[in-house]
Every structure is written in C-alpha cells, then in structure tokens.
Amino acid sequence: MSDFFNANLVLVQSTLTGLLLALSIQVPLRMGVFSFAGAGSYGIGAYATGILVLRYEMDALPAIALTALGTAVIGLLLGALISRLGGLYLAMATVAFDLIISVIAINGGELTGASTGLFGIITDFTTGQMFVLTVAVLALVAMSEVGRLGRRVDTVRDDPELAASMGINVRRYRLAAFVVSGALGGLAGGMNVLVRSTVGPLDIGFGLIVLALTMIIVGGSRSWKGALIGAVIFTWLPDLLTVIGEWQELVYGVIVAVAAIFLPRGIYGVLQDGTRWVQRVRRDRRAAARGGPVVDADGGLRPQEDEAAVLVAQAAEQPVRELDQLSGRTQGAP
C-alpha cells in the first residue's frame, strides 16, 4: 500500500487538487450558477501562495489559509458584480475573468515571474496535510448536499421563484456560490503550487476550465461523489491509457463528448438512477405486501389526458357555455 502510494505520489496529489478544482466549479453549478470563476481563483491561489512563500517567507499552512480567505473575498466581490447576469452571459463573464487572470500573470513582472512564472516554492507541506485538508473540505461540501441545506440548494437551482416563495434568499445563495467557489479554487491552486513548487502562466487559463468541466461531466454534476469519480478517472486515465498508446488524447476527448451528450448527470447520475430503481422496486413490493397503493390511487392520469378528459366532460355536460354553469348551479344552490 505505501509502496503504491510512494510510487504514485504525484498522481495522488493531482487527484486531490483536481478534485478541489472540480468542486470549485461544481458547487456553483449545483446552485444553478453557471460560473467558471473557480478556474480563475485557482490561478490567483497558485500565484498568491507562491508569492507569500517566496517573497514573504510564510509557512505553508498560513499561506494557504490566507490564500483561501483572499480568493473567497475576491469571489464575493466578483459575485456582487455579476451574479445578477443569467445563464450564458454569466458563464462568459467568468470565462473572461479567468483569462484576465492569465494575462495578469504574464504581465506581473517580477512579482509573478512573467512568462517563466514562479519556481523554487519549497515548504514543509506534506501530502498528509494535503489529504487532511481535502477531506475536511469534502466533508463541508458533502454537508451542503444533505438535509435542509441540500434541499434548499436543489430548490434554488431548479426553481428560483419557488425558492423565493419558500423563504429562501436566492441572491444570498448565489453569492455564497461565488464565495465557496473562490475559496475552493484558491485552496486547490495553493496546494498544487506547494507540492509542485512551481507555477507558470501555462498552468492556468482555458485548459483549467476544460479539465474541471471534464471531471464534472464524466463523474457527475450533482454530487461531490461525481467530482471525486471524475477526478480519479481523469488523473489516472492518461496513465492507464498509455497502453492505448499515442491516441490517448483522442480517447479522452471521445469519452468527454459522449458523456456530455448522453449522460448529462455523469457516471454518478447513472449509479443514482440505478439505486433509485432498486429502491422503487423494494418500496412497491413492501406496499404490495401491506396491501397499500402500488400505483397512483386515481389511476395515474397524465396531465394531457386529464385536461382532455375535463374538456370532453365539459363539452358533454355543458354544451353551451360557462354561464350555464354559473347561473344553473347558483339557482340550484340553497
């Protein structure tokens, strides 16, 4: 086990940062906020941690904490600016944000190391610490998927108007999505730069968005478990695919495209549908044993049939018009 661990240290580390990066985009998506700002936060986080360690000689953990706090605040400011935009417009505004961060990195002169970036970022940060941090964050994210908070997040995503009338402050949730996304992205970037000891402009940018989306699309967009599945697959797949040889990039692309088109809720969504089906079968079997309702009590009329039935009934009983109903019934009433 530990041999395996040591031999694949880099892959384990990449899985953890990949997971956090994916979560930084998945969390807002789960709230119906189509934001890719997590990739920008990753870039900011990587450079900020690097600069704090190199120029201010900070220790790893304080540097990371400060970084995550900073990217959370930046997320809040960004959210305050653009969270009112809808759908694609919001998505593109955040893509622009991510790319601006890349341009700033190139133009940061001595501070960011321009096109060569930063290197020699050496601290006592261990993979163990990285693991603990990631698990802690994962637990927090998991808590937002169950119970009251989970239901509220679902409502905000699926039907913001309904959410508002159920007492949910939709704007606050959307802002929270930006803040959490910022913190997660910053953390991912910060941890990555600490274990890799370098960061350059090529490490951040549009490719990060594609990577994170890839993990979410294939793994699943509705749960941290999906992000975990995606992060594991896409960190380890290229290694396994060397068997397939030189066409690994193509295989990778086909997997993503197929998942994006045919499995909108990813592998985890398929697993979930499976468990739901089993639950349903069990439930109906139990109900049948008790003699309770198996199918819907009123025969499972679908809406269209139902409306048609109402119309037909009306036409048959009240051939003339609603007034007949109005006056007739009224006169009949005591």
Binding site: R280, D296, A297, D298, G299, G300, L301, R302, P303, D306
Partner: peptide, 10 residues
C-alpha cells in the same frame, strides 16, 4: 414516490 410517478391531481 417521485413526482413523475404520480397523477396530475396527486
């Protein structure tokens, strides 16, 4: 039950 399993009235 999930909503899709129910009739409109339900």
């Amino acid at each position: 039950h999930y909503p899709a399993e129910l009739s409109y009235g339900t």
